[in-house]
């Protein structure tokens, strides 16, 4: 048996987005009305509270001795409860990065109009175990001059604007 053009021809009917939006075919619209409040739990709760204080906190696994960031109550490799809290630095190095011309919903940024592309990166935080990264944004740097291993430092919101969120760090910027 081959799968042929003839066999698949009537399995699906091709439409354009306009066919749907302009009512050439019937459709139904729905926007789910759902909101969530996710409990932070002890590990992320403390992490966010410390971000509000302008500090980054990690947690140590006493079995593999990794210093884990974001902090977690169990080590996913050793499968044991983690040990003490450890403050780490707000500096680190760029592990890998991207120059994004799109937003989260695949909407295009107006790059030609002067909008700076997003430059998210995985940043290995100083004081955490080598290779331990977090996702954050880079700024105050030419996107095309970012490189692997670039040293960066957190730029914090002013204390009165911090709410205990990952966005209390505005972004990371290069340091010498």
């Amino acid at each position: 048996m081959e799968i042929t053009d003839k066999m698949v021809a009537k399995t699906a009917t091709k439409l354009s987005a306009e066919d749907i939006q302009k009512g050439k075919v019937l459709s139904v619209k729905w926007t789910p009305n759902l909101k969530y409040a996710w409990d932070n739990g002890p590990a992320l709760g403390r992490y966010l509270a410390e971000l509000k204080n302008g500090r980054i906190i990690a947690k140590k696994c006493n079995k593999c001795h990794r210093i884990l960031i974001p902090p977690r109550m169990f080590c996913e490799l050793c499968w044991v409860p983690t040990g003490e809290w450890v403050y780490v630095k707000d500096t680190g190095i760029v592990n890998t990065w991207v120059i994004s011309y799109v937003d989260w919903k695949a909407g295009r940024l107006d790059i030609k109009g002067g909008v700076r592309p997003f430059t998210p990166a995985v940043i290995e935080i100083d004081g955490a175990t080598k290779g331990m990264g977090i996702l954050h944004l880079l700024n105050e740097v030419d996107p095309w001059k970012i490189y692997r291993g670039m040293r960066v430092k957190a730029v914090w919101k002013p204390p009165e604007e911090r709410i205990g969120a990952i966005t209390d760090i505005k972004y990371f910027k290069p340091v010498e």
């Binding site: 698949v8 399995t11 699906a12 009917t13 091709k14 439409l15 354009s16 987005a17 075919v25």
Partner: peptide, 8 residues
């Protein structure tokens, strides 16, 4: 089936 960006 055929694969389309928008199928009816």
């Amino acid at each position: 089936t055929k694969f389309y960006r928008n199928a009816q």
